[in-house]
């Protein structure tokens, strides 16, 4: 119960923001918070997390707020790498070979979601393969 109190602010904010499928439970000294929300809410919750536990040093919370669960197949995605091109790979994992590249800020199309980390995307040039979702941002319709 103490952990729920420590991170109460996050759960309250998640509830207030209408986070979907919100699940909060504690097991073996770790609190797990899962749910789906938009990118703004996700950022807000993570900023609260950082405020309560600076540097995330306690290791007593695992928060998984999925901000891309609502993205549909066929959606347009922007490549948001820090500076480099985004690798398009043969399979879902960095052990798979690179079959193409998408430029930074290029707009690509979501073909299929393999999992939360890897999506199949297609460039306008017709290159298709797996890319890491962390560098893909849905283009607001």
């Amino acid at each position: 119960m103490a952990l729920q109190d420590k991170y109460k602010e996050i759960v309250d904010a998640a509830t207030a923001a209408g986070t979907q499928d919100l699940l909060v439970r504690e097991q073996d000294g770790v609190l797990y918070i899962d749910g789906s929300a938009n990118g703004t809410t996700k950022q807000q919750l993570w900023d609260l997390y950082e405020k309560i536990d600076p540097d995330y040093a306690s290791g007593d919370l695992v928060m998984n707020i999925n901000s891309v669960s609502g993205v549909q197949e066929g959606a347009k995605l922007k490549v948001t790498t820090n500076s480099s091109n985004l690798n398009i790979r043969k399979g879902p994992g960095t052990t798979h070979g690179v079959v193409g590249k998408a430029a930074r800020h290029e707009i690509v199309t979501l073909v299929r979601k393999e999992n939360d980390q890897w999506w199949v995307i297609k460039t306008d040039d017709g290159e298709e393969g797996y890319s890491y979702t962390q560098y893909l941002t849905p283009v607001e319709a």
């Binding site: 073996d28 770790v30 540097d55 995330y56 040093a57 290791g59 007593d60 695992v62 928060m63 998984n64 999925n66 939360d116 980390q117």
Partner: peptide, 11 residues
């Protein structure tokens, strides 16, 4: 933390 770990230790 999105990878379903039991915990993340950053000490």
């Amino acid at each position: 933390q999105a990878l379903n770990p039991k915990k993340v230790d950053v000490t």
